[in-house]
Design a protein around this nucleic acid. Structure first.
Lengths: 144, 144
DNA sequence: TTGCGTGCAAAGGTTTTGCATGGCA
DNA sequence: TGCCATGCAAAACCTTTGCACGCAA
């Protein structure tokens, strides 16, 4: 759509970073640090502006895990169909870890919600909160 | 648990507000304005501190609509057993409506997550985002 | 040359925290 | 009296925006 007509060093380096971290979670801060440590100049505003546009183009997913931590991004590859990959996010309330879950059974939730309740689930936005296996064990050891 | 040992005017008035708005969603700002308009003093910090504790006690649900807007809260009633009521929340990204859903099939998700993935879902915290039936129809009419 | 891209710094908004005071028990 | 609760203001936090400059085409 409104892809940037100009090709810049910053844009290429950012895309290069995204390609290297395809399918992983990262924050804007992660990107900033990555380039800061390499002593490559890439302003924060520039990072946010690029990420925002890529989200709009559908090749980058943005997750709001918690209102007090930074938003998470995930590069899904080229700018094709946004939802070709179906996975969900589990956020542990104990240790704060984020679990990336691909599960057919969970995909059926979508179908069920749509068919029985007319609700079209947005897996990009939805985060399941709870306790991960480790934290659950720790909790039960200390007496729940 | 660590329920406030002291009973204060502010606490009672806040609880009274919550009772009046049980099942509705509101922000910390809504609460602040409510009391400001009545010229009842209730500091912002106090509001946040109470809301935070109630969330911890399980009688208040907190969810993030968007990282740039304020967090939404929903009072689920008294502070008895946190999970005696098994319902899920569907939040429409279109009209913002909040749907309370009681659905056995969704309850099975919990069982599945626990059994197959060791993850104990917290239905109080988890909100399903997506499009409600009405908004889905509107979206398809205007051309998706 | 044109005008978008960049980057610094400041603003934006929500939530938290420090600290002195007030009020419950 | 002892200690928690309160509230103001300032801080913290992530993200956006204003503006001047640089650079791609």
């Amino acid at each position: 759509m409104n892809k940037s007509p100009y090709k810049t060093r910053q844009q290429e380096q950012l895309l290069s970073y995204l390609e290297e971290h395809k399918g992983e979670h990262f924050t804007a801060e992660d990107v900033r640090l990555h380039f800061a440590q390499k002593e490559i100049s890439l302003g924060t505003a520039t990072i946010y502006r690029h990420l925002e546009r890529l989200v709009g183009e559908g090749c980058l997913n943005k997750y709001v895990i918690d209102e007090h931590s930074a938003a998470c991004f995930e590069y899904t590859g080229g700018c094709k169909g946004p939802q070709e990959e179906q996975h969900f996010h589990l956020k542990c309330e104990g240790c704060g870890c984020l679990i990336h879950l691909e599960c057919d059974e969970l995909c059926q939730i979508r179908a069920h919600l749509l068919k029985s309740h007319g609700f079209e689930l947005n897996p990009l936005r939805t985060v399941f909160y709870g306790l991960c296996a480790d934290c659950r064990q720790k909790a039960s050891e200390t007496g729940d």
